[in-house]
């Protein structure tokens, strides 16, 4: 079993987890499903149906429930199984429950804390409002190498400041970039990047930052 420390880890951009969808992600070796009902906040669950172990990231959303693709078992927000299609007249026992992790949406990023007793605070990047999503990039290097790459990258005059273990802030002129750092496994790290300020207002500026993040990924992966 992979470790599940008490800390908040960004796993996706809010905007990229569409209403009525379930999505796969890996956090420190733990497989999770990030899903959203037709409306409302995103949820982060263990990627495993309690019935026969099928990954819930393959599931589909109907009527506010996440349904497993294998047998259609439906799970409500909070994880309780509310529907077993093989037995339409049966009220599912309360004991059948998906493994639900804590999740929060802040700064346009979806964060999760996989710990059984989560107490740590979310990284503090100031007010929640006004963040625009740039993009997620996945870098084929472990966290330490990626943090080194963030520090040495040419941000156009900006400098990088770590906010706790799981995030970094870049201030570059009229723009702040918030980077959530997701340890995927021993060889991969995800970065979820949002921006605030004049320099991120229009699509053209955000496209330029998205391209810059591709270069960041390339520069880190070019190092052995």
């Amino acid at each position: 079993m992979a470790e599940r420390p008490d800390r908040w880890i960004g796993v996706a951009l809010d905007r990229q987890i569409k209403p009525g969808s379930s999505n796969p992600a890996i956090v420190g070796g733990n497989a999770i499903a990030v899903w959203r009902a037709e409306k409302g906040p995103a949820n982060v669950w263990e990627d495993r149906c309690p019935h026969r172990g099928m990954r819930l990231s393959f599931g589909f959303v109907r009527d506010g429930m996440l349904r497993c693709i294998y047998h259609g078992w439906g799970y409500e927000l909070g994880g309780h199984c509310a529907s077993i299609p093989a037995h339409p007249d049966l009220a599912p026992p309360k004991t059948i429950c998906a493994n639900v992790y804590r999740s929060e949406e802040r700064y346009g990023i979806i964060w999760t804390n996989l710990s059984e007793s989560p107490n740590a605070p979310l990284p503090d990047a100031g007010p929640d409002q006004g963040w625009q999503s740039i993009r997620s990039v996945y870098v084929a290097r472990q966290v330490a190498a990626v943090k080194g790459g963030l520090a040495s990258f040419d941000w156009g005059g900006g400098r990088v400041e770590e906010i706790g273990e799981g995030a970094a802030l870049v201030n570059a002129g009229g723009l702040s970039l918030l980077i959530a750092i997701q340890p995927v496994d021993e060889s991969k790290t995800g970065l979820h990047v949002v921006a605030k300020g004049e320099g991120a207002k229009d699509a053209k500026a955000r496209l330029a930052w998205a391209s810059r993040l591709e270069r960041l990924r390339g520069s880190i992966e070019a190092q052995s």
């Binding site: 309690p50 019935h51 172990g53 099928m54 093989a86 004991t95």
Partner: peptide, 16 residues
């Protein structure tokens, strides 16, 4: 399916 190996303990995967 996770795990790939078949659990024989009925508390790991809940049947109906």
């Amino acid at each position: 399916q996770r795990p790939a190996l078949l659990p024989l303990d009925p508390t790991i995967e809940l049947p109906t």
